[in-house]
Design a protein around this nucleic acid. Sequence first.
DNA 1: TCAAAAGTGTTTTACCTACACCCATGA
DNA 2: TCATGGGTGTAGGTAAAACACTTTTGA
Lengths: 231, 231
Amino acid sequence: MQEPEHKFESIFTVDCVVFGFDEGELKILLIERNEDLFKSWWALPGYYVGQDEGIEHAAERILYELTGLRDIYMEQLFTFGDVDRHPKGRVITVAYFAMIRLNGQKELKPVTSYARKAFWHPIKDLPQLAFDHDKIVEKSLQKIRRKISYQPIAFELLPEKFTLTQLQNLYEIILNCKLDKRNFRKKMLNYDILKELDEKQRGVSYRAAKYYKFDRRKYNRLFQKELSFNK
Amino acid sequence: MQEPEHKFESIFTVDCVVFGFDEGELKILLIERNEDLFKSWWALPGYYVGQDEGIEHAAERILYELTGLRDIYMEQLFTFGDVDRHPKGRVITVAYFAMIRLNGQKELKPVTSYARKAFWHPIKDLPQLAFDHDKIVEKSLQKIRRKISYQPIAFELLPEKFTLTQLQNLYEIILNCKLDKRNFRKKMLNYDILKELDEKQRGVSYRAAKYYKFDRRKYNRLFQKELSFNK
DNA sequence: TCAAAAGTGTTTTACCTACACCCATGA
DNA sequence: TCATGGGTGTAGGTAAAACACTTTTGA
């Protein structure tokens, strides 16, 4: 199987597209690079995979180092390996995407030095990105658009308690279209994966909305069914 | 961004899961290895990615070398990089899957020497596979099961002309369940992506079935719509 | 009392499901 | 004429889509 002219070694990395939802906007986490290469450019948080480290582990580690968050919904997205994607040589990157709830906190504190800062950027208004990271972002957007319509990943982005309107806004932003309020509610509540709480919004100058939370147990049951396909 | 203890180089490869449909069975193409490592074991066709070769290109090249086929539907599946997936060191592999029409030909001639032989194996009855290739096969099966229900990739497996019953059989085999004949036909024809041909089966000792072919132009229109999601 | 968002039902339409018999063909 | 698979329609149920007004709250 070896033909030496084809065999070579490559550096490989992971890059993470971390989605958050805040101020009514879908955002992704970018770092400002502190390296000679693409110095001061914005880039996706990414890093070398360790010699004795699984890829998934590397992705989780990087996310932790940048955000202090663990146990986050995370999924492999795609592997980008164009010959010329890295100016200094062949670097193959495995992209992951993650979705986190910001819970109101405005800033995440990186615990590593390999980025000068980490900031949330609205997806609508991204700066120019280093390497082929714009391609990676584009692909991850396609992915969550498709995924949201058959799996309720949107909940990962919302706070523990949320109103149906907040949920609908999020769907509208991800799918980039208006949804009908009554139909949306009917459909969502029909899935029977939301638990209505006793609590209501407070301090709003309009009729207070009920809070709901996501019922992961019920969801798992539903998703089992979804996997068994439609006859 | 560099922290030397994390940076290292890895060999990387592509592996292809090539699906075919023949004798009423879903099959995948396996090679018999001719290397010291896993000698004489069955494995997915895979190979080192070249220094100046894109990953996708490598996948296409390998498929060509093993089957003589080009311009095949092919898609990146997943990247497998467990630390211990290769006994001789860290090898990361990008898996692709492909679907080809066998057109009645029983054998494909590899044009390389890195496999002793290449054979079609029924998916129901696979031999033990080298490395973690069983995991890769499992993942690709999940993928096509899901994909077939929102994209008509099944056509790639059938001959140019096919009967609705052949198409239904293929769906049943991939989805692993019985489908209702009338409902299946109604739904398929409703998609309006099949062209009815004048031709019929010949030489069969029962009522001859009409041949259809896949209308890629109409399909593309449909798929555009599908991508714009449901309000 | 006003502004702003919450909350609520019905009708129409399309699609999914279940189900059984006659037809055409070659042996 | 027989065996084999090809081919067809309908009724009932479920989910999606379209659509507008009343309610609650604080300022």
